[in-house]
């Protein structure tokens, strides 16, 4: 079954030089298990195809039911040099929440 990431999580994003950080926080434990399993660095990299031109790193924070993604080479040179309207990547958390995740339907097992 397909679920919308924004139904199970929220988040915040910002800049770290030319990289953006996108923190995704699940609303509950069940949501965290889903993002931990399905929201991989590879999927995030593919989602940001054409936006993130570098690697995507992923870190787990189970204590906060959260994942932290670092999107390298994303902000056109970074906050002060970038010509982008969103030079600090402030809207990238919302952009990631556009994602839909294909997950196993527990009820069908």
């Amino acid at each position: 079954m397909k679920i919308k990431l924004r139904d199970i999580a929220h988040g915040r994003s910002g800049d770290k030089g030319d990289a953006a950080n996108v923190g995704i926080i699940a609303y509950n434990e069940e949501g965290y298990e889903i993002i931990k399993k399905y929201l991989t660095a590879e999927k995030v990299k593919k989602h940001f195809d054409g936006i993130c031109k570098g690697e995507v790193e992923r870190y787990e924070l189970p204590n906060l039911k959260a994942l932290n993604f670092i999107l390298h080479n994303t902000l056109d040179g970074g906050g002060t040099v970038s010509l982008m309207l969103d030079a600090q990547g402030k809207t990238l958390a919302a952009a990631l929440l556009r994602m839909e995740l294909e997950i196993e339907d527990k009820n069908q097992n």
């Binding site: 770290k16 926080i25 609303y27 906060l64």
Partner: peptide, 16 residues
Amino acid sequence: LHTVSEQLLYEIGNPA
């Protein structure tokens, strides 16, 4: 928990 967690995740790199 939600408003504080969002700020904790803001502009961090390796959380450890």
